[in-house]
Design a protein around this nucleic acid. Structure first.
Lengths: 106, 106
DNA sequence: TTTGTATTTGTCCATATTGCCAAATACACA
DNA sequence: TGTGTATTTGGCAATATGGACAAATACAAA
């Protein structure tokens, strides 16, 4: 594997890693409905405000969301719309797993 | 957020987490071309055989790949084909990031 | 059965992630 | 300027992850 390929895989992995957390997925789901401030996202996620802020920073650094400071609030929004249909395949994986489990059990 | 939603997010996160590693992405890329034994994947990934085996176990447990033991070899293959086009959005994230960096720099 | 090859598992260590509290910062408004 | 609200950052402890080596396991072939 050459260096270019390696770097590309690392870049892809970074994006996936940023998404690979329940709290961050919850944030993305909510942001799919539109721009939200940190306090709104905190209510949904339910963790400490500082924890939510850190999760959002991870999504921002990965390029998944952008932030916009207005007044004393910071509004986050999805930067890449396709992130949404993007999950349909993850669902397929889950569904295939469920079917297999059902087979094993049944 | 109710328990059902929470569980669903965790399940999605598990799949993404399984994919969120350069070595495992390399394996998925290679498996996109067809079934491969562990030793073939090891040559591409370049880590210790035991490390590769562990990565494959993670993908298997997440439902991304299946394994088939034939003779004294184990052949892995993609279980859910859509995993592939699935990455086009990750690419969009990367491209958007690159454009933004270019703007900042330029 | 013995030998060799392919793969997995046990163990250990280094590093990364997560989450909380407390403190710092940013900003609006009085 | 001082006060209150929103958000981020510093620091710490608990837990998870990643990778290597060695040992165990599975199987084929001699």
């Amino acid at each position: 594997m050459d260096t270019k390929t390696r770097n590309h895989l690392s870049a892809r992995a970074r994006v996936l890693k940023a998404l690979a957390h329940p709290a961050r997925l919850a944030a993305v789901d909510e942001l799919a409905k539109g721009e939200r401030c940190v306090c709104e996202l905190q209510q949904i996620i339910g963790s400490d405000m500082s924890t939510v802020s850190r999760h959002l920073a991870i999504l921002r650094e990965a390029g998944v969301v952008t932030d916009d400071k207005r007044g004393n609030q910071v509004f986050y929004s999805l930067r890449v719309p396709c992130i949404l249909n993007f999950f349909s395949c993850v669902e397929s994986v889950l569904q295939a797993s469920a079917e297999q489990s059902a087979q094993v059990l049944g």
